[in-house]
């Protein structure tokens, strides 16, 4: 199986706080993978390092066969990484359609642009809201809009930071279905998630981060049964 993402010895510290302590991590093409860990485990920092928002102190990030460690965020995005943030990162004053235009216009033009926008409006069930300012959509709809913005031009890797935060159970389930459909189209997905039910719904494999290092990795059942994982989550270590 070919690797789409390979992280080696990634290290980052802010003063005395080590947020990434030599992370080795790899993701194979077509995977749907979840990243979990208690608060402060370094999940968000790991994402920021992958996106180039922080420069690592040491280590390399290889994406799709080439070293992207020294690239700026926008250059990484152009290589086919896409991201959806925890707080919806949309353009609130602009219409839903304009949000999608900005997301796709760099790659698509004319008829293919309109076609993709139409397809994404259907995919996210936002057809009726096409001309609505994005800021007045419901929270769930804003999340979907951002997912649509992230996947419309078919990235190779989609990073999701708590995609279901603040969603109703119904919206969460629908989001899971969306992600399965996207994964079926060949998009590799890496998600940070808290909701274990949702993790079970989407991920085949799970990685646990703890204190900036990989603590465990395996299938969802292996992770749930892993005694160490229970300890770090429940704080029962050494009791």
């Amino acid at each position: 199986m070919t690797e789409i993402l390979k992280v080696q010895g990634l290290r980052k510290a802010f003063g005395g706080v080590v947020v990434a302590n030599g992370i080795d991590f790899s993701l194979s093409k077509g995977a749907m993978h979840c990243l979990i860990g208690p608060n402060g485990a370094g999940k968000s920092s790991f994402f920021r390092l992958l996106l180039g928002e922080h420069a690592p102190d040491a280590g390399t990030i290889t994406f799709d066969g080439s070293d992207i460690t020294g690239l700026r965020s926008f250059q990484r995005i152009r290589r086919g990484i896409s991201v959806k943030f925890q707080v919806p990162g949309i353009f609130k004053a602009l219409s839903v359609r304009q949000n999608l235009e900005v997301a796709f216009q760099d790659h698509l033009h004319g008829h293919s642009l309109s076609a993709t926008i139409r397809e994404m409006l259907d995919f996210t069930d936002l057809r009726a809201e096409e001309m609505t300012p994005a800021g007045i959509l419901s929270h769930g709809q804003q999340q979907w809009l951002e997912i649509a913005m992230a996947v419309g031009v078919e990235p190779k890797l989609l990073l999701l930071d708590e995609p279901t935060a603040g969603m109703s159970p119904d919206e969460t389930r629908k989001t899971g279905e969306m992600l399965h459909e996207l994964n079926g189209r060949g998009i590799t997905i890496l998600a940070v998630e808290h909701d274990m039910a949702f993790v079970e719904q989407i991920a085949k494999r799970v990685t646990v981060l703890h204190f900036g290092s990989i603590f465990a990795e395996g299938t969802i059942t292996e992770i749930i049964d892993h005694p160490g994982v229970q300890e770090i989550y429940l704080g029962t270590a050494d009791v």
Partner: peptide, 20 residues
């Protein structure tokens, strides 16, 4: 389009692959 998007949320524009 990109200009007004930058006005609204420059960070997101960068994360869509534009050099803000």
């Amino acid at each position: 389009n990109v200009l007004v998007a930058i006005r609204e949320n420059p960070h997101r524009v960068g994360m869509l692959g534009y050099d803000v």
